[in-house]
Nucleic acid binder design. Structure first.
Lengths: 203, 203
DNA sequence: GGCATTTGTAATCATTCGATTACTTCTAAA
DNA sequence: TTTAGAAGTAATCGAATGATTACAAATGCC
């Protein structure tokens, strides 16, 4: 017991570890933004050392791009699943996607990382990649989900607002501020308890 | 000519200089976000030294809060003006505010700084202040602009989307990407040439 | 004109952070 | 069993950055 215990170091395959780090990075980037996130915070969130996460992706920038790519792919997966479901669903496809969209919020940071990227359009590397993400989503809504331009527009607008309210942590003021309660009741008519449950499991 | 020329150092009253620095800070924070912006970048954008901007606000955080405060006040001013105009205007009050809103985009960074703050809801200092900004806007729409909850909701959603598309610099791809052209034509039906002109005077 | 106040800068400090290097430990194949 | 490669860390480095200090120069007031 004089020497430090082996601590049951769970050793993983690099792919498995990479997935873990990507998930942690998604949470950290979503919460603090690209510049506010540190590789050390990602490392601690993933339970590995800081040099390891840097070497895993080469640079912090490459790591963020990997997070972005994963986020948009997962979002498209959820959307595709919603389209498949909506084939024999009474409600419109928009409502169906929207339901899956709100549930994407449970993947902490996924939508927020995307939003954080959307705010960095001026960045020479991240900007073009972020625009490509937005394009992918729009083209999906138009061509795969079969929405008209104005439907896609409205859908995107609602999505941006949901993202913003989550990024703001507006639910923190739900009980204290009547105006906030009214707004959230309006914006999340059916999914409010879900949103509040998300809030209550914060670090 | 051997000694360095006096360079016509325009000396200002502190209030005037403060306004100049705040405007520069708004641009820099809007473009790079709170963490990505440096006090040095703000100083250079304002044409003063870095220690000066720090001492002017005490800390970078206080400077960002000052930017936030100015931004939300200017937005409310524009909204109030729109409400006054709409008293004897045929189109609805929503459309009238929306017009003024788009024109707020010409104050480079103002809406983007707000959006950047909205994405930092987890920050212990910036978060509460950002939520207060959002509350102010919502309460204004409900009580002063006389909107119903669902009208305010839709208005906010459209605003978030406009902000996001501007932050993304989506207009950069207007000519190159047909999908982007379609989206922007839909979202900015009357104000497109205005948006494109904004894009064309970038640093 | 003298002088206190305000406006502003140069130099520099301490910290943080991304990245690098060198090393250890575990695993699997021959 | 040996050993090559993969998984992972400790230590540390250099650059960037927010902040501080000390100082210079312009302004206004008596």
């Amino acid at each position: 017991m004089t020497t430090t215990a082996p601590e049951t170091t769970t050793r993983m395959r690099s792919e498995e570890r990479r997935a873990l780090v990507l998930e942690a990075a998604t949470r950290v980037f979503g919460e603090r933004g690209y510049h506010g996130a540190t590789t050390d915070a990602v490392a601690r969130a993933a339970g590995v050392s800081q040099p390891y996460v840097v070497r895993m992706f080469g640079t912090k920038e490459a790591m963020f791009l990997a997070v972005l790519d994963r986020a948009v792919e997962r979002m498209m997966d959820a959307f595709r699943a919603a389209v498949a479901e909506s084939a024999d669903a009474p409600e419109g496809i928009g409502r169906c996607i929207a339901t899956n969209y709100v549930e994407l919020l449970s993947d902490r940071g996924l939508l927020l990382s995307l939003m954080q990227a959307f705010m960095l359009g001026a960045d020479p590397v991240i900007g073009p990649e972020a625009r490509a993400c937005m394009r992918k989503v729009y083209v999906f809504l138009r061509e795969e989900a079969g929405m008209a331009p104005d439907e896609a527009h409205e859908f995107l607008a609602t999505g941006m607002m949901l993202n913003t309210l989550v990024g703001l942590r507006m639910a923190d003021d739900y009980e204290r501020e009547p105006a906030v309660r009214e707004l959230l009741d309006e914006v999340f008519p059916t999914k409010l308890e879900f949103l509040l449950s998300l809030r209550d499991r914060e670090s």
